[in-house]
Computed example of a mutant assay.
Amino acid sequence: MTDATKPAPRTDLIICPNCDAVFSLARPGHGEKAVCSRCETVLITPRRNAGLQIIALSLSIVILISTAAVFPFLSVDAIGIKNSVSILETALVFSDGPLAVLSLTTAALILFIPLLRVMLCLYVIVPLVRDRAPAPYSADAFRVAEALRPWSMAEVFAIGCAVALIKVSALVHVTFGPAFWLFSVLVMLVVVQENIICRWSVWNALSRPRRS
């Protein structure tokens, strides 16, 4: 099929990404949202100044990831022996042994993939907020960021740490380092960013650039 015979894309329909239900497109106003009537997945959530909010949150997340990775995460005191460790040191503790792949994968899931997703988001959103044409390969960048979303596991790491600390607190004295609090704020900002961003609005802006 040549380009001349390809059917034009339907801009009057929207498909639920969760259950594949098809609806006539009705754009909600700012502060409202369009929800799938079958599975209640949120389809469109336009917000005023959402782009600026996403940029601010993304920059904050970049700073928090960079600092939380190297600052001490916690200190352990057992029978007079003290030790402190950072998140990056913990993730790479077995990097020289047979568990190197597991260690590198852990570091990627809790640090590098979240950082990559935020950088890709900034690459896509900043030109749109500035009312410029999308950056080269913006659609591919946003598609990669969305594909990596299930593998960004900062929240899972935080929950796992909470469970582990509860179990070991009766055996040793645990002191939270600055990275623990930075990472706690990081997790909250990631959740807020995921709730603010309207993916339909991003794709719509990428498909209809305002000016070159």
Rank of each mutant, 00 (worst) to 15 (best):
T2H: 09
D3T: 12
D3P: 01
T5D: 10
A8V: 10
R10G: 02
R10F: 12
T11F: 11
I14S: 08
I14P: 01
C16K: 11
C16A: 12
N18L: 10
C19Q: 08
D20H: 14
A21P: 03
S24R: 14
S24E: 13
L25Q: 09
A26V: 15
R27E: 14
R27T: 13
P28C: 07
P28L: 05
G29H: 06
G29Y: 02
H30T: 08
G31D: 02
A34G: 05
S37Q: 14
S37L: 11
V42M: 07
L43Y: 11
R47S: 14
R47G: 09
R48D: 08
G51S: 07
I54G: 04
I54P: 08
I61C: 09
V62D: 12
I65M: 06
I65W: 01
V70A: 06
F71I: 05
F71R: 11
L74C: 03
S75L: 05
S75R: 13
V76M: 12
V76K: 02
K82A: 14
K82E: 15
N83P: 00
S84K: 13
S86C: 04
A91G: 07
A91Q: 06
L92Q: 12
V93H: 08
L102G: 01
L104C: 03
L104P: 00
T106A: 15
T106F: 15
A107K: 10
F112Q: 09
I113E: 04
P114I: 00
V118F: 03
M119W: 05
L120M: 15
C121Y: 04
C121K: 02
C121I: 08
V124F: 08
I125G: 06
V126I: 15
P127E: 04
V129D: 10
D131A: 12
A133K: 12
P134I: 04
P134R: 09
A135T: 06
A135W: 01
Y137G: 07
D140L: 13
A141H: 06
F142Q: 05
R143H: 10
S152R: 03
M153L: 15
A154R: 00
F157G: 01
A158W: 06
C161G: 04
V163D: 08
V163P: 04
A164C: 06
I166F: 11
I166C: 07
V168R: 02
S169D: 05
G177W: 07
G177Y: 07
G177Q: 10
F180V: 04
F180N: 06
F183T: 03
V185N: 01
V185A: 12
L189S: 11
V190D: 12
Q193L: 06
Q193M: 14
N195L: 05
I196C: 02
I196P: 02
R199P: 03
W200L: 10
S201G: 10
W203Q: 05
N204E: 15
N204D: 15
R208S: 11
R208H: 15
R210G: 08
